[in-house]
Computed example of a mutant assay.
Amino acid sequence: MPLFEGKVALVTGGATGIGRETALRYAAQGARVTVADINEDEGRNTIGMIEAAGGEAIFIRTDVTSPADVEAMVARTVERFGRLDAAFNNAGTPGGFTNVVDCTMAEWERTVALNLTSVWLCMKHEIPAMLASGGGAIVNTASEAANHPAPHMATYVATKSGVVGLTRSAALDFAGQNVRVNALLPGPTVTPMLLRGTQGLDRSLEAFGAGLPMGRVGQPREQADVVIFLTSEMSSFVTGMAVSVDGGLNLR
C-alpha cells in the first residue's frame, strides 16, 4: 500500500526545487496534495505534473509571510480534502549576501519573515488541522548552514538556526498529541535557489560539491525522500530532530 494512501499533504514552496519534488513524491505515494507558492505559473506546472501521473492536487497561491494567506491555505486544504496529515514548510529565501554590518533593516526583516516567521505561521494553522484529523507530521526546511555558517550569509544562518529551535519547541509541545515535527537541513542541492546563490557568490556547483565529503551537490529527490520518510509512519517514533542531508558536510 502507498505510504500516504487516503492522506493529505501540504507543501509550501512547491513550485520548484525540493518543494516540487516532494509534492510529486507525496502524490506518487497516494496523497492528495496542496501545492502552495507565490509563483503561480510554476506552481500550476507542478499540479500538471501530478495530474499527468494520475494524482490529485490543488494549487493555492500563498504568500507565506501573510497571516491571512497562510490561514486561508490551510482552511482551503481542509475544505477541499477534509483533513491534513502531513506538511512540508519549505518556502524560503537565501536572503542578501551580506555580513551583519552591511545588512539593511529591510533585508533583515524580509529574510526573517520568509524563513522564520512563515514557519511559525504555517505551524500555527497546520497543527490544529492535524489535531482535528487525529494527528500528523510536519517537516520544516532549515539548512546545514545553521551548523556550518558561511561568510556573508548572516541573515540566512540566523533564520535557519531559528527554524531548528522553533521545530524542537513545537515537537516538545505536541509530542503527546500525535503531532510530530522535524527539521530538514539540506546541504548544497541543485535548486533554483542554489543556482542564484552560486551566481551571487561567484561559485560554481562543482565548487560547492568539491567541498563536501561525497564530492558533489545533492539532488532535490534526495531531499524529498527524507521528507517523505519523516512525515510517514516509517518514522513514527521520531520527533524534534534536525536531520542533515548534506553529503557529509555535517562531519566537517
Rank of each mutant, 00 (worst) to 15 (best):
L116G: 00
T117M: 12
T117P: 06
T117L: 12
S118Y: 06
S118H: 07
S118P: 03
S118V: 08
S118G: 04
S118R: 07
S118K: 03
V119T: 00
V119Y: 01
V119C: 00
V119W: 02
V119M: 06
V119G: 00
W120S: 14
L121Q: 01
L121G: 00
C122L: 15
C122T: 15
M123K: 01
M123H: 03
K124R: 15
K124W: 11
H125Q: 10
E126F: 12
E126G: 06
E126M: 10
I127M: 11
P128K: 11
P128T: 15
P128F: 13
P128H: 10
A129C: 12
A129I: 13
A129R: 05
A129M: 12
A129E: 03
M130K: 09
M130Q: 10
M130N: 08
M130H: 09
M130I: 14
M130S: 11
L131A: 14
A132C: 10
S133W: 12
S133F: 14
S133E: 09
G134I: 08
G134F: 09
G134S: 00
G134H: 04
G135L: 09
G135V: 09
G136N: 08
G136L: 11
A137R: 03
A137Q: 00
A137C: 05
A137D: 03
A137L: 03
I138W: 04
I138F: 08
I138E: 00
I138C: 06
V139Y: 08
V139I: 14
V139K: 09
V139Q: 09
V139S: 10
V139A: 10
N140M: 10
N140S: 13
N140A: 13
T141G: 03
T141N: 04
T141H: 02
A142K: 01
A142T: 04
A142M: 07
S143L: 05
S143F: 01
S143Y: 08
S143D: 02
S143V: 07
E144R: 13
E144F: 11
A145E: 09
A145I: 13
A146L: 04
A146C: 01
A146Q: 01
N147K: 13
N147G: 12
N147H: 15
N147A: 15
N147W: 13
H148D: 07
H148R: 04
H148A: 07
P149R: 08
P149Y: 04
P149Q: 01
P149D: 05
A150D: 01
A150S: 07
P151R: 01
P151N: 07
P151C: 04
P151V: 03
P151L: 00
H152L: 14
H152Q: 11
H152M: 14
H152W: 07
H152P: 04
H152I: 08
H152S: 06
M153Q: 02
A154I: 10
A154D: 04
A154Y: 05
A154F: 06
A154V: 11
T155Q: 15
T155V: 15
T155F: 13
T155K: 05
T155N: 15
Y156H: 12
Y156F: 15
Y156I: 11
V157A: 14
V157D: 10
T159F: 12
K160Q: 05
K160H: 02
K160W: 05
K160G: 05
K160T: 02
K160E: 03
